[in-house]
Write a protein that binds this DNA or RNA. Structure first.
Lengths: 219, 219
DNA sequence: CGCATTTTTGATTCTTATCAAGACGAGTGG
DNA sequence: CCACTCGTCTTGATAAGAATCAAAAATGCG
């Protein structure tokens, strides 16, 4: 998973009118800053993190975007925000001219997610944050395969590394690790490989995410 | 500062086409939930908090809105958000029909603020959060009166109580108190009355808000 | 003037961060 | 093919920052 070469330029001055597809490697930064006002980008496959950094390097991931989500100068503060692919991704660039409705909807969606995330950051415990994150990622990235027994287990690829989860959730990677391990011990989730997560007890995870007390039973 | 009587209804079914002004007392909730999609509300005077609550009562104030800011179903998630006046306020209700541009700009402004606030909540220390908040509130609410000495001191009414600041910044009211007291001891700010704040050393406060180390010198 | 609310300060606890070390897995070169 | 290395993940020990608990001081209101 080595960070790959340079940076694919999005929305260069010579805007093309037709949609243009690009593939980007994992861990590649996506340049938003130079892009024109109209240039917009749609994620077709993969996973992209939108983030901001403080002067001293502290980082907060504002949102994790999966397929279907869009990004661009009309949607984020490109002076302050950066973006990076967290998985091999495929994106489409287009000039959002007449699409005010689409932009407005995406803007609203982004805002609602940002507000929910603010509640998470400001008022939820570490365990609640991690539980919430897992459910959100399952929604965005799970291929919903139910096991033969009819028992609904959701499995998904966690494109985020522990440090990414930490930077998204306002925690440290160690705390994220401990929460995931605790969930695993409590059989809320399961994983052998650290990036393939199965949600085994969605109801309990949802209760936890919503702020229920949580009976911590050690293994 | 007693919480006042009932709740002024905004955007009742019988929408009027003409802008309508309302005065609301301090600490009065503003009902967003029932309002129609088009009904929008502009703050003319005063101060309004937009917030969300968790099931167990934990509260996070998402934004503090001063004069000029707008609010409504097209701008916030009215299923989850509540609003409350924090000062005697005057608001104008109108049907935002043709005003897509205004709505989009307000939406973008709201999103940019939400994202900056997420960074604050996720990655800043208590002191940094309080410093950032004071600067933001000064921008929104200060009547910029420079003292005769040419020394630029900004004074403003802190419409928020300590608990409101805490709920905005993801802290407790005691921590907010301690930060304010520390700033006062360090002569970054001054106040005799807890709601009238003077910024005495804006540069230092800005440095702190941006994340500089801060030499804590006790009194 | 007295009561209720809000603010301030102090003592203590708790959660999470920090520091440190080892485990695991993937890729590389001998 | 195996030893080695690098990056990530996990776990443990300790420290720090903020929360909680508690009580007193201001402040505002009736």
């Amino acid at each position: 998973m080595g960070a790959s070469a340079p940076v694919p330029l999005i929305g260069n001055p010579t805007d093309r009118r037709l949609p243009k597809q690009t593939r980007i490697a994992s861990r590649t930064p996506i340049i938003l800053e130079g892009s024109s006002y109209r240039t917009t980008l749609r994620i077709l496959e993969g996973c992209v993190a939108l983030y901001q950094e403080l002067a001293d390097g502290r980082r907060l991931i504002l949102d994790i975007l999966g397929p279907g989500r869009i990004l661009g100068a009309r949607l984020v503060d490109i002076r302050r925000c950066k973006a990076m692919a967290l998985a091999p991704s495929s994106i489409e660039t287009f000039a959002a001219d007449g699409e005010d409705g689409i932009i407005a909807d995406a803007l609203r969606h982004m805002l609602f997610r940002a507000q929910a995330h603010a509640v998470l950051l400001g008022r939820k415990s570490a365990a609640e944050r991690v539980a919430t994150a897992l459910l959100d990622l399952a929604d965005q990235f799970a291929r919903k395969s139910r096991s033969p027994s009819g028992n609904s287990r959701t499995t998904f690829t966690l494109h985020l590394q522990r440090i990414d989860l930490a930077d998204w959730l306002g925690l440290t990677l160690e705390t994220v690790c401990r929460c995931l391990s605790a969930f695993k011990r409590s059989r809320l989730i399961a994983f052998d490989h650290p990036e393939i997560i199965t949600i085994s007890d969605r109801a309990a995870l949802e209760a936890l995410a919503a702020g229920s007390p949580l009976a911590a039973r050690a293994a």
